[in-house]
């Protein structure tokens, strides 16, 4: 069962201008529900564009984006068609129905934002409130939740992302870079999205900050069983946290599968120009030197046991 399905999706920037550029080219892709999926590709491969399509911030030039089999870009006419037969609309005058449907479309669009939470690159730029608490509460407030519910959500989100309670009353602008990033992440998690989409969540953070962020995301995903999509350049991070991987280049999906499958194709990855984890590079080097170690290694732990087994027995033993 796919949570998200892209059905022959294309996206063209600046159509009809001299700057026209095809960012996505007939992409069909299914994202498994309840999994962490990493999307890798270099700048301009179309991965960031794809992200914006998922919660309706942008809509595809061609094709459909399906969330639980529902086309998120259903046009007003289609919504109208679907609503016409429903009781509340049947008895309305034409203009009132039109108005009601317009409101319905806006409502669906906003609801989509709450269902598919989007964490942009360098999300700390989005902080604006006086206190960390209020900032995290911005999303839930827009959802129209009750005071108690908002409070519960904020505290829950703060816990997921490891924000200590004494930080909640501070101004977000007084925090360190890593803390700001976590507050921004909490601001989206507080909406309890079914799908969490993140663009380079750890960009520019030091190893400690990076681990905090990924632990937070992983914690949220495991506890709520939601679907997580992470767009990143860092294969090493992806290898560590993701179940599935999508490799993109030139607006197309080049590879899709679980991490093991993807990392076993080292030469394909480097021909796309991606940075392979150092440890996978090492394995390739050892194989070149005539040692029979397995190739689909992408974490240090796996490498330790594989190399150890090889050195002790002289066999790769996949």
């Amino acid at each position: 069962m796919y949570k998200i399905y892209l059905d022959h999706v294309s996206y063209i920037y600046g159509q009809g201008t001299p700057f026209e550029k095809k960012a996505l080219d007939d992409v069909s892709l299914g994202i498994r529900a309840g999994c962490m999926t990493g999307i890798i590709g270099h700048t301009g491969s179309g991965k960031s564009t794809m992200m914006q399509l998922l919660n309706g911030l942008a809509s595809p030039t061609e094709g459909k984006v399906l969330l639980d089999d529902y086309d998120i870009n259903s046009r007003p006419e289609e919504v109208l068609e679907a609503c016409k037969s429903l009781p509340p609309y049947r008895n309305l005058s034409k203009s009132a129905a039109k108005k009601a449907i317009k409101a319905e479309v806006t409502r669906r669009r906003r609801e989509l934002c709450f269902r598919v939470g989007l964490v942009m690159q360098y999300p700390e730029y989005q902080l604006f409130e006086e206190t960390v608490f209020k900032d995290i509460a911005f999303g839930p407030q827009n959802m129209g939740l009750s005071e108690e519910e908002i409070k519960a959500r904020v505290l829950e989100a703060a816990e997921f992302t490891g924000i200590e309670s004494d930080l909640l009353d501070k101004s977000p602008f007084d925090l360190s870079g890593g803390q700001k990033r976590r507050v921004a992440l909490a601001g989206v998690i507080a909406m309890r999205p079914e799908v969490l989409v993140l663009d380079e969540p750890a960009a520019g953070l030091d190893p400690r900050g990076r681990d905090f962020i990924f632990e937070g995301i992983s914690h949220y995903q495991k506890t709520t069983g939601s679907t997580v999509l992470i767009v990143s350049h860092s294969m090493e991070d992806m290898a560590r946290y993701c179940d599935d991987m999508v490799v993109m280049a030139n607006g197309q999906v080049k590879m899709h599968g679980n991490c093991k499958e993807v990392f076993s194709k080292v030469s394909d990855l480097s021909s796309i120009g991606l940075d392979i984890p150092q440890i996978t590079q090492l394995m390739a080097l050892l194989r070149e030197k005539g040692m029979d170690v397995p190739q689909d290694i992408y974490t240090v732990d796996a490498a330790v046991s594989a190399v150890k087994r090889f050195l002790e027995t002289g066999k790769g033993g996949v």
Binding site: Q52, N55, L57, R110, C113, F114, G117, L118, M120, P123, Y125, Q126, F138, G139, N142, M143, G187, V188, M191
Partner: peptide, 11 residues
């Protein structure tokens, strides 16, 4: 960018 980020939070 900021507008998109806040829209994504339901603004």
């Amino acid at each position: 960018k900021i507008m998109n980020a806040q829209k994504a939070r339901g603004a």
